[in-house]
């Protein structure tokens, strides 16, 4: 219980969680076979990066406001990228009737 009390002030916890999210997102990106599945894993990657940036800025930097600004920009960029990805996925589905990347092999070979 005492150990749990020290957790929110411990940088290592945030770093480990961020890397865990990054690893799980990476696993998802490698092994999911639909475009939307890949998008979901990509968003997980970005969440991990956000936690990392915020944690470093809070613990290691004298000016924590800069970390908040950077994380806000990260949020905005993640949203823009998700919107573009979805536009592409919808267009691909409309033209090929599938979003499974096993079947979208027009550029292969």
């Amino acid at each position: 219980m005492e150990f749990l009390h020290t957790l929110p002030n411990n940088l290592i916890v945030y770093v480990v969680v961020a890397h865990l999210l990054f690893g799980i997102g990476l696993h998802g990106m490698m092994f999911r076979r639909t475009l939307i599945g890949i998008l979901i894993s990509l968003e997980l990657l970005i969440q991990g990066v956000g936690i990392n940036v915020m944690a470093f800025g809070t613990f290691l930097h004298v000016d924590p406001l800069a970390a908040r600004v950077m994380t806000l920009f990260l949020l905005g960029i993640g949203a823009a990228e998700a919107a573009l990805f979805l536009g592409i996925a919808v267009a691909v589905f409309r033209n090929n009737q599938t979003i499974s990347i096993n079947k979208l092999t027009g550029l292969k070979g």
Binding site: R32, T34, I36, G37, T98, I99
Partner: peptide, 15 residues
């Protein structure tokens, strides 16, 4: 929204 627009039944999503 993207999920509901690109939904195709029975597509295996995991490898």
């Amino acid at each position: 929204f993207g999920l509901s627009l690109t939904h195709k039944a029975g597509e295996e999503g995991l490898q």
